[in-house]
Design a protein around this nucleic acid. Sequence first.
DNA 1: CGTCTTCCTGACCGTTTGGTCAATAATTTC
DNA 2: GAAATTATTGACCAAACGGTCAGGAAGACG
Lengths: 207, 207
Amino acid sequence: MTIQQPQTRIQKKNRETILDAALDVFSEHGFRGATLDQIATTAGLSKPNVLYYFASKEAIYTALLSGLLETWLDPLRAIDPDGEPVDEILAYVMRKLDMSRTFPRESRLFANEIVQGAPRILDQIEGPLKSLVDETSTMFRRWTREGRLAEIDPHHLIFSIWATTQHYADFSAQIRGILRSEGEEHFDVAADFLEHFYRRALVPSPG
Amino acid sequence: MTIQQPQTRIQKKNRETILDAALDVFSEHGFRGATLDQIATTAGLSKPNVLYYFASKEAIYTALLSGLLETWLDPLRAIDPDGEPVDEILAYVMRKLDMSRTFPRESRLFANEIVQGAPRILDQIEGPLKSLVDETSTMFRRWTREGRLAEIDPHHLIFSIWATTQHYADFSAQIRGILRSEGEEHFDVAADFLEHFYRRALVPSPG
DNA sequence: CGTCTTCCTGACCGTTTGGTCAATAATTTC
DNA sequence: GAAATTATTGACCAAACGGTCAGGAAGACG
């Protein structure tokens, strides 16, 4: 773990500026669709200057991805094994929905990457992500065994939560087009919908 | 409506070959990420020959998109207003899941397009798609009023169906990575999961 | 102040990209 | 089978692309 810290304040500021601009551009156009010129212009820097802080376009992209994956998985880790199952999972759903509202660019960045076969993040999916999901699944299964959670496939439950919540960020162009909504009002309706929807699915049936 | 039909058999065959190759390439890399050379190579044709059949890269893309949208919406149109609400909607879910299994490339093509802001298909979303969704929503609301469907926001119900079913095509890289599955067995588990999941959500609560 | 390091840029380079075109090959038509 | 039409291609082009580099500007430090 050779994490160097000799960051001057200019370095820190410019690296952040670049990563933020890159998030804008990559999340909107994908890796191949994005250009260094776009990133440089968005960041308000010259192209050679961008390359002074990052070795290559690829380096910017991977820096973004790996930096973001942690944040993206935190809500899953935050599920309390000792909590009330239905409440814990519902809270997770709400946290994920909130992330779609607050960090739509991050969500679309991952969406782009994964739709195109996850070429630069497959290791992390098959490694840390899989482990975390498997652990959580084991927990869900325990909860089901204890009669505190409906009988439901834990993996597919998690998939459905990702799908339904991230949909509001990843497919927002479609949702806005259909709801004719330019603001974020629909997120509150979505929260309501998902709350009822998942409560019904999760509460164990009597007997 | 000037739809010309003077297609020779060679024209027909090659246009189809090109569109199929383009579906391969565009669905994997998005519009900007795809190159004419890739499409030509995949189609087994020379690049100038591809451009002999389509005016431009953009023309191939839009030909694909508009040709596919109809197919994509058919399952929604197939919901029978006079049928049993829960059964009808469940059948719709299954049809959509089946399309994710059978036509993953088409699903990813749309996913790419919409994640990136739907720049070349927004008209169709705000026009025909919105109309169809609004009509269907009205029908769902009527079913709810008649006590044959749970109280549930129809728009968000439709969004959730799209999200959960298309997820299996659009994010298959992630799903395969987590389930360590290379085949399609997980589609059967998914069908089971979604069936129970949506039945719980849709059946009206007594009273 | 002067020196040293960090920061920044204009000009440039090789490659890839979407697209053109003149010429040739294959097919259809009579 | 000749003429006309359709199909195919190698060679080419201008623009856009990711990236380099020498040199100058700005900041840090004694």
